[in-house]
């Protein structure tokens, strides 16, 4: 889902702006490790691979992309953790 308006209130904001691949996805994984089911992680990134990497991970892991918002100088990706662990 891609939207420029409605967004959820994030539980954690991960600011990876200025880092290159794999910086944003690395930061997302660190936040995922500490997250609980139901949490919303918001990833801020400038690296273009952040979008596709996060989408691919969410699809594979069964977690939910709530929004991908293109801001003027970065992208904001919101992920709801719906699956973690066994």
């Amino acid at each position: 889902m891609t939207t420029s308006e409605a967004t959820a209130k994030p539980t954690t904001v991960v600011d990876s702006r200025g880092t290159m691949c794999p910086g944003p996805i690395t930061d997302l994984f660190k936040a995922y490790r500490h997250a609980n089911v139901g949490d919303v992680i918001e990833l801020l990134a400038t690296d273009p691979a952040a979008k596709s990497d996060t989408q691919a991970w969410a699809k594979r892991s069964g977690n939910e992309i709530l929004a991908i918002i293109d801001e003027p100088d970065h992208v904001r990706i919101q992920v709801r953790i719906v699956k973690k662990g066994r």
Binding site: F29, R33, W57, R60, S61, G62, K83, K84, G85, R86
Partner: peptide, 23 residues
Amino acid sequence: VTFFNVESVDPAKREIYSLEGES
């Protein structure tokens, strides 16, 4: 094997588990 964020390992069963729910 991609997208495998290691959650834990069971040495007795020789199994490794991911946060994503795989083993």
